[in-house]
Nucleic acid binder design. Structure first.
Lengths: 113, 113
DNA sequence: TGATTATATAAGCGTTTGATTATATACTGT
DNA sequence: ACAGTATATAATCAAACGCTTATATAATCA
């Protein structure tokens, strides 16, 4: 059973449409900052700051590969089951990743989930 | 599958510790405004305003009985399954209701869930 | 009827949030 | 080494948020 106050902090993080989209995308595949920038049509600092918040609580992790930083969900996090229970109910963003690939802007991080 | 943008609005509502406590309490039993005021030791307008936000999206409903307004979860709401999936993972607030009863401040709304 | 209790709403205010621009750091490839 | 690419951080600012106080409305009860 999760403590309510701490849970509220996690839900607040997910209660932003940009971060929630990010989390759903990361649930489907690891992504790097520049992919989010392309997908969301937002400034790179805005993306980085959202990712920083998610990383600050540990619910996402990062791996550096060449010049990129790839983010993925931290499946060992205490709140991962809660987060996952939410994400599974959200519409897939897979088509967005496919579009990215088709436009040649997808970056293969070669990290196995 | 729930749309992400709308889901983010629901999660933002739950991403406040007062509202999340309210929702968990309502998941366990209907409550009226003055009970929340007593439980949370917050001003009555603060409580009313949180409830108004929850009612605005329809995830809680109200029933008037004598001089009280009892709130409860709207189990027919489109987002109820998502909300419930979150609430079941949170620590029970049942002990808070028991304390209220013991201090003689519990109000029996006589509404069946 | 007048006092009390319960709730809602409006206005005001300090804090937080999410974006932007500017700048710094780091890695890549020629 | 240098130009280009990728990311992070800092400063700034308008908008949103959550609380308070003040006030209005409605039901209860003596």
């Amino acid at each position: 059973m999760l403590p309510i106050e701490e849970s509220a902090l996690i839900l607040k993080l997910l209660g932003d449409k940009t971060r929630l989209r990010m989390m759903k995308l990361l649930d489907e595949d690891a992504c790097c900052v520049c992919e989010f920038v392309e997908l969301f049509q937002m400034s790179q600092p805005a993306i980085s700051q959202h990712l920083r918040k998610l990383k600050a609580v540990g619910i996402v992790k990062e791996v550096k590969r060449r010049q990129w930083v790839f983010y993925s969900l931290n499946e060992t996090h205490q709140y991962y089951p809660l987060v996952k229970a939410i994400l599974v109910r959200l519409e897939s963003q897979q088509d967005k990743l496919v579009s990215l690939t088709e436009s040649g802007k997808r970056i293969d991080c070669q990290i196995e989930k």
